[in-house]
Structures are given as structure tokens and as C-alpha cells.
Amino acid sequence: MVEEAVKEMETDTDGGVTRIYEIGYTISPVVKEEDVEKTVGSIRSEIEKAGGSFIAEGAPSLTRLAYEMTAGESEKRIEHDRGYFGWIKFEADVSVAGALEAMLKKDESVMRFIVFRTVREDTRAKMKAPQLREVKRTDTIKTTPRRAEESAGPVSEEELEKALQDITKE
């Protein structure tokens, strides 16, 4: 059964085997926003050159990283806490994956990249609510301060003074 599935994904086109890949990349935040497209363009041209076709794409956007990454030449390594993260899903010959990796390794503006095999369908999860419990929790948090505000709102200065006097009397 597994063999069948693999055969489905692989289509022979004049001798070469085409497969579906996805590439994810993080571009260094040092790169100017206008120049980010250039790097993405070089990836796209590499795929197009080998006759690959695009399936889906996520435009690079500046995102905060979960940890600091070091990037740059060996002498001056800089730590970055953000980067332009984007991805492309494409169908191409098996040789493209290797060529892309070789190209991106040389590219200094790309901090990290990942190329792997995937499936044609959209793999992003379509989740509704994260979890019922969490929703309930956020509700309780929201309602409690509101009540406090409501009760705090009508309290006039007179009442406050009265309360203060009561305290001082004691």
C-alpha cells in the first residue's frame, strides 16, 4: 500500500522523477525588506530553471524566533531574535532539491532553510477552537475584572471617605 502511495506522488516525465517538495527558509533580518524578494526570487528561479511548478507559497514575513540564532561569517557572528520566514511548496525533479540546498548554503542572507518531501494537499491544520478548556479559562479571566470595574465604578468619593473614616475610627 505504501508503494502505491509513493508511485502516485512520483510521476515519470522523460526519464526524470518529479516529486513534491516544500522549502522553508528564514532570511536574516539584516536584509532590507525590498531585498527579501530578491532572495525568494533566486529560489523560485532555481526551481523554474529545472522545470518545476509551484503549488503553494507563503510570503516571507518578519517573525520573532523562539530562540536566538547566530548567523554571519565565522569572524563576526551576530545573534538574531527575528527573521523573515517564508515557504514554497513545489513539484520538481529530484535533482532540484540538491541544487537548492547547494545554492542556499552559499547564500549568506538565508540563515536557515529546510527542504523536505511532502504531499500535494494542503497540510495546514484547519482547527476551530484550540480547546474548550482554554476558552472557558479566558472567559473567567475576562469576566472577573469587568465585575471589579462595575463595582468600582459607582463608588463615589463620599462612600470612600465614609469607609476611610470607619477605618480611622477603629
Binding site: 528564514t26 524566533l65 523562539a66 530562540y67 529546510i114
Partner: peptide, 8 residues
Amino acid sequence: RFMGLLPY
């Protein structure tokens, strides 16, 4: 984790 989306 490798792409910096989740922490190690």
C-alpha cells in the same frame, strides 16, 4: 525547532 518556530 530547527526553523526557530518552537524552542528547543
